[in-house]
Design a protein around this nucleic acid. Structure first.
Lengths: 185, 185
DNA sequence: CTTGCCTATGCAATTCGTTGCATAGCAGGA
DNA sequence: TCCTGCTATGCAACGAATTGCATAGGCAAG
């Protein structure tokens, strides 16, 4: 279970309230770790009880109060210890692959619109990634212009870009196969 | 929740007991949908109650009896209906990416052995995929030699192969970055 | 003026997933 | 001989995740 650690990383990069964290998880962090606001609130309370994070009540006018969390030293220590633990095998949940194999027992053509929708989603995400890369890392080729945090964020982003490119190419392969099967009879 | 559907696909491809299904999930199917034997037994009982699968008690000598399940018509219908539903957004859990960003707040070099271990695991998996491809689809280039089920299994396998290739290349990128950061100070 | 959305947090209920343990006979190696 | 591991199923307990709902004021569009 690494939600605690994902939250810690996010809070180290910038402090924020539970609500703000939930929105970050909907965007950037959520690309490699998803979480709902319920999970985040629950874990934040536990982390505060364990001393991993500190909370500061902030009154706002016209808005409900918010609790701004920031990472505390015990949290940093826990993160460092976690980094030295072995990575547990990831649980995979690739629904589309299940569906593609399921299509053999039904009409393969029925899957085509869904795969097309999927492909569009990945293409849009790739475009967003490339935009973000040009914005945040315009001169990544020049050595010495980026600090460690930025270089690590960039290498994770490059992974996302390559993943999307690969996925789009594969979905084209899937679509070609499905269309051939649909025409074949 | 698509465990029911993954089990249905597996049973349509070949009937089997809960235990056999658990072992399939450890291997082929488990590459895109993981499940423990406890989950499988629980879901199988529910599916039997719903009429999605039929069970047949098989006595064995020297072994405990086993219940061999096979997909029933209501299960096929449910699968066909599921194929027409929109794909729900997948929940991503990419622990390594979280760790890489976490490394910015600790010693990046501490992550190198774990990433190397990860890379070896993916390289081994790629080798297994390629072996399986040569064994199961030796003349995929010749049209007309494969039926729909085989062609769909093959396109899923090609996805796995491309995913592993991409991941290995990315992990090399990650390792190069981590090593530069470790040498840089 | 009202409908809906955004910020901000939380309770409650349910389902899902994991872990530990139990049974029980058989096969193979130390 | 003892120990480990495989087949085959299952109970019990716990923890994690999801879903629905609630509060509550503000802001903007129709």
């Amino acid at each position: 279970m690494a939600l605690e650690h994902a939250i810690l990383v996010s809070l180290l990069e910038r402090p924020g309230s539970g609500y703000e964290l939930a929105r970050r998880f909907d965007r950037s962090i959520g690309r490699f770790w998803t979480a709902t606001h319920q999970q985040i609130y629950r874990v934040l309370r536990r982390m505060e009880a364990d001393g991993w994070v500190r909370a500061e009540e902030v009154a706002q006018d016209g808005r409900p109060d918010k609790k701004v969390y920031s990472a505390a030293q015990p949290g940093r220590d826990a993160l460092a210890a976690w980094l030295r633990e072995p990575v547990e095998p990831e649980t995979v949940r690739h629904e589309l692959a299940v569906r593609i194999r399921a299509a053999a027992f039904d009409d393969p053509a029925a899957l085509i619109p869904e795969v097309e929708r999927h492909r569009e989603g990945h293409a849009a995400l790739l475009a967003r990634y490339l935009l973000g890369e040009r914005r945040d890392f315009p001169d990544a080729g020049t050595p010495g212009t980026l600090d460690a945090g930025q270089r690590l964020q960039h290498v994770v982003l490059r992974g996302g870009i390559e993943y999307e490119r690969m996925t789009i190419a594969w979905l084209d392969d899937v679509l070609a196969t499905l269309r051939e099967l649909a025409e074949g009879r």
